[in-house]
Design a protein around this nucleic acid. Sequence first.
DNA 1: TCACTTTCCCCACTCACAGGACAAAGGTGT
DNA 2: ACACCTTTGTCCTGTGAGTGGGGAAAGTGA
Lengths: 396, 396
Amino acid sequence: MRRMTARPANAHQARLLRLLRDGGPNSRAQLGDQVDLSRSKLAVEVDRLLETELVVADGLAASRGGRRSHNIRLNPHLRFLGVDIGATSIDVAVTNAELEILGHLNQPMDVREGPVAVFEQALAMAAKLKASGVAEGFDGAGIGVPGPVRFPEGVPVAPPIMPGWDGFPVREALSQELGCPVMVDNDVNLMAMGEQHAGVARTVADFLCVKIGTGIGCGIVVGGEVYRGTTGSAGDIGHIQAVPDGRPCACGNRGCLEAHFSGAALARDATEAAQQGLSAELASRLEANGTLSAADVAAAAATGDATALDLIREGGTRTGQVIAGLVSFFNPGLVVIGGGVTGLGHTLLAAIRTQVYRQSLPLATGNLPIVLGELGPTAGVIGAARLISDHLFSPA
Amino acid sequence: MRRMTARPANAHQARLLRLLRDGGPNSRAQLGDQVDLSRSKLAVEVDRLLETELVVADGLAASRGGRRSHNIRLNPHLRFLGVDIGATSIDVAVTNAELEILGHLNQPMDVREGPVAVFEQALAMAAKLKASGVAEGFDGAGIGVPGPVRFPEGVPVAPPIMPGWDGFPVREALSQELGCPVMVDNDVNLMAMGEQHAGVARTVADFLCVKIGTGIGCGIVVGGEVYRGTTGSAGDIGHIQAVPDGRPCACGNRGCLEAHFSGAALARDATEAAQQGLSAELASRLEANGTLSAADVAAAAATGDATALDLIREGGTRTGQVIAGLVSFFNPGLVVIGGGVTGLGHTLLAAIRTQVYRQSLPLATGNLPIVLGELGPTAGVIGAARLISDHLFSPA
DNA sequence: TCACTTTCCCCACTCACAGGACAAAGGTGT
DNA sequence: ACACCTTTGTCCTGTGAGTGGGGAAAGTGA
């Protein structure tokens, strides 16, 4: 099929496309109820959208007590590609225009191998998804990378954990390679957008999305829009000092949150504990695999291992301390916890909650839910699809 | 003179009013250059504004090489009242529509005497200004209070340092009393708006404005708009933990920033140091006045008193620690330091800068100015006037 | 079958706005 | 002083967006 290249010609059309994306197929009449337009005007705009083939007519809707309405839906052939590049793995997914995942692949991959190798891998995964029949081509792609991004240009800037990525023209290169529009953002921002679109944050305008993976980052949503900061590094909370004169961190300071708790730090602590004989459970796992990861700690905690539980609780407390500060400052309506370590589940969440509710003022925490992300590993790719669809579904 | 009651009828008129407010009197032609409207349309809107008497014609402008243009300016009789209620004093000022201060009064007053007494005082000061001839009445008033505010209703909520203010209908009561529209906001937000309008933050979209007075608060500006948080308590950074297991704070926790550094804490520390004989300078001042304030510490520091300098430096370091975290999180384009303790001047600023530049990542601090507020005690009242003028200069 | 509802299409009418023509008012060079 | 250009303000008309009504089409329920 020929790829879509049309864009909405005006704000009305953009509005309609987003309604169809977020609300699914809809009758003309129902659309009319949601946008403040006269019936005639609505008909004109819908007809124009039909001409561009961005939307298609799709049979008749159920009657609401009178003449049945024609259903309108986004073109079912539209396909978005969502790529979420983590520190140690790549997620690639294909969605339709309603951002429903049609196919999803995950592969381990070290981001430090550099942009060329990583994107070769990602494109191979995309090709595999194509071959499986869920897509014939892509109308747009969203890319998440684990570091700060100069958003308008789609270029990573000075990413600490991604040597070799600084200044790599991700957007341009992939746009060329894929032959479709591409948008690039920080992976944490995409997770926030994912949870906002299809997860726990659907109804909240201002919230924080804390992603604890290999590192720690925080997506900031203000008034329904991702806030990226002056240089695109907003939400970089991994290097906030959590412990005065604490552990040395790769960034050169001491006591950074990331140095005390993160996927990497947790694995290191667990290994140390196992070697010191503090936990038989962890020690046996270390012997079995040769290394320990956050997942091992989660598993050990699930068996009731006291050392593992302590590690999680202490990490949660540290994280909670930092989040408490952010809550006082930002007064969000919701805090979402996500990322690789969500496997640590309730133990972690409880520790974070305890610390936040203890340290922040009642006015800010009074009605503040702190919850785990709902979408798990799909949050990033859904957010990526959402990113590019927001871009494409806005007036040209 | 009859008070203005008109409001702009549409977004174009609102835009023009704001241009005239921020840019001063202007010719019709120059306005046309700034507002992407046809000359005919512009003429119509300007004529309508002239009819409402919100703006007046004002002679001829200088020639730009052809026929001279007529000057347009906001009605010179418009008057806004700005009231900034601090913890220990009240500032009241009258501005014209261009937000230039025409008269300004300051009086000590303890906010804990309650809203009735405080507003009686504030209204008396407003009356005094009227009597001095700078205003015959007010077309709008902005009020700043030192605590969180439910912004749409203009009602303080659970203000820690203002017992008796919780739920007091400030906006409604003052609107009745003054007979003009009133908007109420947190004093820190108003300071931020003041610095944005007429101070150091004129050209910055995203910045933080840290006010260190009796307490510590932080105004947050995102995309040129003040961000207030879900419940209006955003920016309440005084109770972020700065010192683990530090001093007990009135809020019930330990180690809050405010407990370690603020006007109140500084006065306490200085008194203690004087009593312990650590500083002859402070001791003599204590003997002279009976009490010590932040201003005494500033004066002592100016004479080179080591103890006073140490107190300031330590406080600046603490504050810097917290700000460093906020900078990592928020990635602002500017940090403004203001409030009562700006008298501590460069010593404080240097300590804060050192700490922030040391603790935050280069990407966030790379091009981050940290400066003192430019407007001093007038920032609050200018911000208050700006608040109400923003309200009045928006489509009804 | 009939009365009623809902949806959809068509058309005339309103209104905002742009943009051109022109006059008024001022500069600039000879 | 004069011709000529530039800028500004006003008037007027054309255009295109959008509204709202009328009525046909298509359905429901009694």
